[in-house]
Amino acid sequence: MLEIKGLKAGYGAMSVLQGIDMQIHAGEIVALLGSNGVGKTTLNNVISGFIVPTAGSVTFKGQRITGLKPLEIVALGIAHVPEGRKIFPNLSVRDNLKLGAFRRAHERIKQNFDRICALFPRLKERLDQLAGTLSGGEQQMLAIGRGMMSEPELIILDEPSLGLSPIMVEEMFAMIAQINAEGAAVLLVEQNVMQSLSAAKRAYVLEQGRFVMEGEAASLLANPQLQQAYLGL
């Protein structure tokens, strides 16, 4: 469904991604692993249209999306839940969710709103609260819920477990499985290697702007090289 070929991108003279090939098929969870500063967020921002790549292409459902504006990419069915969440702190939880359907699925806003309330009961209890007053975990749920409001076919989750308590991390991964079960493909960008590989079907490992490993999540989990580098085993 999403196909990336020979992708290079960077900031000014600094190149970050140095030739990347990647596929995400409809309905699967793909984990993107790697430590800080290797280019994971840059890759997300290329997919969602915030960064124009210097070479290569991104196609989504057969359509080339490199060079499209972020709002056009949202309209095609890619939702990006960024690191740092970027929710609207001065708006109520309800208004945050409703704005999630601003560009796409606006005609089914009611059904999707109810669906997300059922998925995140904690948000349902706080619909009239200002989003800025939520706890970190609740804000993360809100950011994901807002992304889900556009009925994405692919949802990019950038570090969803960052800064959450261990119990919330468990809860978060359960929700990601639930979101995927409802039909959306998930690109899961994480530093939490063990749990991401357990949740994902396939995975890519990014180092210095290149993929150094890729394949079935289960076989990567058993790979001694990966165990040594990322799990300290």
Binding site: P70, F88, P89, S150
Partner: peptide, 11 residues
Amino acid sequence: IEKRGAELVGI
């Protein structure tokens, strides 16, 4: 208040 967030929802 959140320009980036607004762009992310397609505003």
